[in-house]
Design a protein around this nucleic acid. Sequence first.
DNA 1: CATTTGACTCTAT
DNA 2: AATAGAGCCAAAT
Length: 104
Amino acid sequence: MAERFFARVYDVVRQIPEGRVATYGQVASMVGEPRKARFVGFAMHSSPGAKGGVPCHRVVFKDGSLCAGYVFGGPDAQRALLEEEGVTFLADGRVDMGLCQWEA
DNA sequence: CATTTGACTCTAT
DNA sequence: AATAGAGCCAAAT
């Protein structure tokens, strides 16, 4: 299981409740490796997708912005999906971190 | 087996 | 305050 780190990331992301988001760095910190924030997102790319139990759209940047250009359909789809779950968005098109950032 | 790359984050200018 | 650059560490080639 060379990819145990990825599996661990998936497990954490899977625990993110609806209407709540987490940053890559936070998820990385949860798995015990805050330096591998980049791989958290990289793991998302290799993830089975929201259907596989990994709502990668709930994982955002530390600023609350999304990874536009690499998501399934685009930032608009991700924004709409998060908004559908009850996530509050700022006028800048970013997630309201102070209100919807996931707390373990 | 060595090199490259990458959904990030922080620090410095 | 905003922009630019470097650092991190594992997976893919």
